[in-house]
Amino acid sequence: MAVRYGSPLKRAVTFYIPLVLMVGTTLFPFYWMVITSIRPDSELYNVKMNPFFTLRPTLKHFQDLFELTMFLQWAWNTLFIAVVSTGISLFCGLLAGYALARLQFRWAPSLGTVIFITYLVPPTLLFIPLGDVVKAFGIGDTPWAVILTYPTFLIPFCTWLLMGYFKTIPREIEDCARIDGASRLQAMVRISFPLAVPGILSAGIFAFTLSWNEFLYALVFLSSPQQKTIPIGVFTELVRGDVFYWGPLMAGALLGSIPVALVYSLFVEHYVTALTGAVKG
């Protein structure tokens, strides 16, 4: 859809001003994280000071974050949990997506519907009984409590996305291989799966950000400080009753956002494909 240029004034009013406002609003809270994390406490808690910049930047809040909390442990937990649960979900989603897109069997349409429905179930609906299930398996307060429950929303997403992806790969490519003597399984693993790599990457990036950011299950299933993920740790250990340690809080918020933003920025196009593919199906 081509949009042509009008007069400079008109373009400023209808385009540049709204664009700058939009980008400014979008990014301002991140600027606020950064500036808060480097302003000394004497400035943070003084309403006389201009809060938008500082002449005495400090790394004290970062030092406090590392010395007074288990932030590095949380970062490791978050990474471990995100990588393993994404791996499990990609494995399951790849196989299931392939089966639903390519194989002919009686239950294919209804199973596709079931997986689509589970995709829409919000964690809020299930967290209370799921807490009992996690306890019954003896994995409460261990990384496995979330590694095994995150796939409940990651697998349906990966399956749905990869199913759509497999449907775009022509069946004929596999048929050629079959004619040349490849078995059903070999055609799948050696022909179709390699062609689906961009789709797998998209699903993987998206799943990774989802599990990095998850809050409710981690809050309910992980309780000891050394088991927490970054979102839970920052939220629970740096707020004591009514006291908020804003400097270290914002330092933690910043450091907890950077890895996922970095992964995202490396794979923006794949992420966007996943985002739009997820709703298009």
């Binding site: 980008v23 809270p29 606020w32 950011n213 920052v234 804003w246 996922v260 995202y264 992420y271």
Partner: peptide, 30 residues
């Protein structure tokens, strides 16, 4: 710009919400 636009959606909601909470602070709201 398009990549930057998605940032609020990408970063952990808890962490960005904490930044908002600080911006809405009773005493020190920006």
């Amino acid at each position: 710009v398009r990549a930057g636009m998605l940032l609020p959606w990408i970063v952990p909601t808890v962490l960005s919400t904490l930044a908002w909470q600080w911006m809405f602070d009773a005493t020190f709201s920006v």
